[in-house]
């Protein structure tokens, strides 16, 4: 088994992620994307204020969404940086679309692993960031491959 297809999450965690808000997942992706950049990227992001955010003024207690506009931007910047390769790995991958239809509901963990494997085979530079790729795969599964590809373009 490809080491990158190993599940990063438990089944329960996976359901939690799939039920999360899109902004939360992009905030997670942005957080993880920091590690895939260079130290100077991090310094510049910090100096640009992208890592600061005041607590949200929500109208109540209890669980609040993890939404961080700066981290979301970093997550989206990561996608933009690798858009060409991701398009090839995800959007031009007929096998993936078939897998989504066949396994999307019941074997979502297999679909996640397939997406991660497809990305790592197309973008070897990202092989070492398996947690980031698993979060990215969750984003793709949650929104659907077609919708993800539309956003990517």
């Amino acid at each position: 088994m490809n080491q990158h297809s190993k599940a990063c999450f438990t089944a329960e965690q996976l359901q939690e992620f799939l039920a999360a808000d899109e902004g939360e997942l992009y905030s997670m992706l942005g957080t993880l994307a920091i590690a895939s950049g260079t130290p100077i990227d991090l310094l510049e992001a910090g100096r640009a204020g992208k890592l600061y955010q005041a607590p949200p003024t929500v109208l109540g207690s209890g669980q609040r969404p993890f939404k961080h506009s700066g981290l979301e931007q970093l997550g989206k910047a990561f996608l933009a940086k690798w858009a060409t390769q991701l398009r090839k790995a995800i959007c031009e991958n007929d096998h993936l679309l078939k897998e989504e239809k066949a396994r999307g509901k019941r074997e979502v963990d297999v679909l996640i692993a397939t997406i991660v494997a497809s990305i790592t085979s197309n973008i070897p530079e990202l092989q070492q960031f398996s947690v980031l790729l698993n979060v990215l795969a969750v984003i793709i599964v949650r929104s659907g491959v077609n919708a993800f590809c539309q956003d990517l373009s």
């Binding site: 799939l18 039920a19 899109e22 999307g104 949650r142 659907g144």
Partner: peptide, 21 residues
């Protein structure tokens, strides 16, 4: 219940599909 909460988030194709199916 979880599914209902999930689809209150915009663009959740995964859970929408499950419910629809």
């Amino acid at each position: 219940r979880r599914a209902i909460a999930a689809v209150r988030q915009p663009n959740n194709f995964y859970y929408h599909r499950i419910l629809r199916d």
